[in-house]
Design a protein around this nucleic acid. Structure first.
Length: 195
DNA sequence: CCCTGATTCGC
DNA sequence: GCGAATCAGG
């Protein structure tokens, strides 16, 4: 595989989205995450920092002037501490709106993702099983999910009381054993279950 | 152990 | 330019 234009484009896009190198490598296929990282660096990407990188060459120049040998390096002025953040102009508090530009990771690693049991009809055994398992949940956040962690959502997404199961997922499955049990039910077992 | 990016260096 | 091996960290 080689870095064709559109592959590079995908790389740039995903890297910009905060995707991990391994995720990008998987998406592209035929390359390892090392290759991706290497390319990212060669492209000069990598620095997510909008930091324009200070004086590229503060060289005072001046014709004829040979360097006096050692540059004194005046030690950068004190970094603004938590003191006096207000420059001078006062913004109406109403439209304060500071934006956290470093948007990162919109979609986790996995694929489809969350079902959520809702008010389903599931076998009592399986229900009991998940309740038990959810006590052992690793309570991972969205960003912490990987291909081998159970992506079963637990709790209310609208509250702080929300996390993902995170237990080891079944090989090739998005969920752990217990959650696979309730997520993938044979049609046969779903038939006429009255409440 | 799983994962992350960063760097090195032979190719 | 490329990327495996390695490093350094969570």
């Amino acid at each position: 595989m080689s870095w064709t234009d559109d592959r590079v484009e995908t790389l740039k896009r995903m890297w910009g989205e905060g995707q991990s190198a391994s995720a990008i490598a998987k998406e592209l296929g035929g390359v390892t995450r090392n290759a991706v990282i290497g390319k990212v660096h060669r492209l000069g990407l990598s620095n997510r920092n909008e930091e324009p990188e200070p004086a590229p060459a503060p060289e005072p120049d001046k014709k004829a002037g040979k360097k006096p040998a050692a540059a004194p390096r005046p030690e950068p002025q004190a970094e603004a501490g938590p003191a006096t953040p207000e420059p001078a102009s006062e913004e109406p508090a109403t439209q304060a709106a500071f934006t956290p530009p470093p948007r990162r990771q919109i979609v986790p690693a996995g694929q489809p993702l969350p079902p959520q049991p809702s008010a389903n009809e599931i076998s009592p055994e399986a229900l009991a099983s998940v309740r038990e398992v959810e006590k052992k949940a690793r309570k991972l956040t969205l960003m912490e999910l990987t291909e081998r962690t159970c992506k079963w959502p637990i709790g209310d997404p609208a509250t702080e009381k929300f996390w993902f199961c995170g237990l080891p997922s079944q090989p090739g499955k998005p969920y752990c054993e217990a959650h696979v049990g309730v997520a993938f039910q044979p049609m046969s077992s779903r038939r006429d279950r009255r409440r």
